[in-house]
Amino acid sequence: MVPDSQAAALAAHVRDIAAVARFQDRAAFARLFAHFAPRVKAYLLRLGADQGQAEDLMQEVMLTVWRKAPAYDAKLASPSTWIFAIARNRRIDALRRDRRARFDAEDPSLLPEAEALPDRTLDAGRWERRLAAALDELPAEQAQMLRLAYYEDRSHGDIAQSLRVPLGTVKSRLRLAVAKLRTMFESDR
């Protein structure tokens, strides 16, 4: 996809989430489903779910999208990032039967936000288009680390074991990858 059509698709997803939130718009939900459901299922399959589990969990994720749409904030995350986080969390909850309490923003032990964090001041869409470009520019060995982490559910310790690479090497590759992405974020301010 050329960047312009990507931006248009992203804006359409944002509008559809807003329509679900405000009007319980089923046609908008069906459009979100058409784009995201096959991706969420593919993601769950990659993480080792079988067809039935992936399909069931995908259904839960999309139902969560319907119910949580009013909480979506386009300034904080693009639709794909928001839905990725829902899918990741639903899967962890399914594995752990919900024992874990995730931190929430109302937690009184939270320190006040640092001022003007870039992710609060940036338009998530513009930011994520640059992220996609930056991911393409990462050296293969760094991109591989991120792929193994996000697509195969490997912690950096697991990656070191399965690739027979020293733990320190895996850590430094991940840190370099994140540093590259960070440079991009800072230059975008």
Partner: peptide, 14 residues
Amino acid sequence: DAVGGAMLERIEPA
């Protein structure tokens, strides 16, 4: 999280 979002956009849909 946004890295995950970008990967979701690139994954081969099932």
